[in-house]
């Protein structure tokens, strides 16, 4: 009888990444506790920022501070989180349009249950005390006033 072969395969390498002037500034801003978007020629603001305009491809350079408050545009509830999740407690995932930005970004919603979430509600950033220039420096978003 034919034997089925089985083999483990582990690939591992410490890649590096050069972030460039726009993503680099965004990550540096997170380390400093501010969120940066970027202004397009039509005056709308993208957050997170991109180096090149997503429609016309022109280079974008006009970084502007946005948030930390914003509007929840859509959400879903995650319970229980999977092992790879950045959050170990049940949480929401939302599309958050930060004040001053015209596009939403995805991030975690740190509330106790889905009954605390609704489209259109105001949320605000919760920062980690120790920051290193990574998207996870933003621990997540909470209802406005929750951290007061």
């Amino acid at each position: 009888m034919a034997e089925r072969l089985r083999a483990d395969l582990v690939l591992e390498y410490p890649f590096t990444r050069t972030t460039g002037p726009v993503i680099g500034a965004f990550l540096t801003g997170l380390r400093e506790g501010i969120i940066l978007g970027i202004r397009r020629p039509d005056e709308t603001v993208l957050c997170p920022p991109t180096e090149y305009d997503p429609e016309s491809s022109v280079p974008l350079t006009d970084l502007v501070e946005v948030g930390p408050g914003g509007e929840l545009m859509s959400w879903t509830w995650v319970d229980p989180p999977r092992a790879q999740s950045p959050w170990d407690q049940p949480h929401g995932l939302g599309l958050i349009r930060l004040d001053g930005a015209d596009t939403p970004m995805v991030h975690g919603l740190l509330v106790d249950g889905p009954d605390q979430l609704s489209v259109g509600m105001r949320v605000t950033a919760r920062w980690r005390p120790e920051r290193e220039g990574h998207i996870a420096d933003l621990e997540g978003f909470v209802p406005e006033g929750a951290d007061q």
Partner: peptide, 12 residues
Amino acid sequence: TRGDVSLPGLVR
């Protein structure tokens, strides 16, 4: 090393 540009910046 082109440490001054991202991958998109390099191809651009």
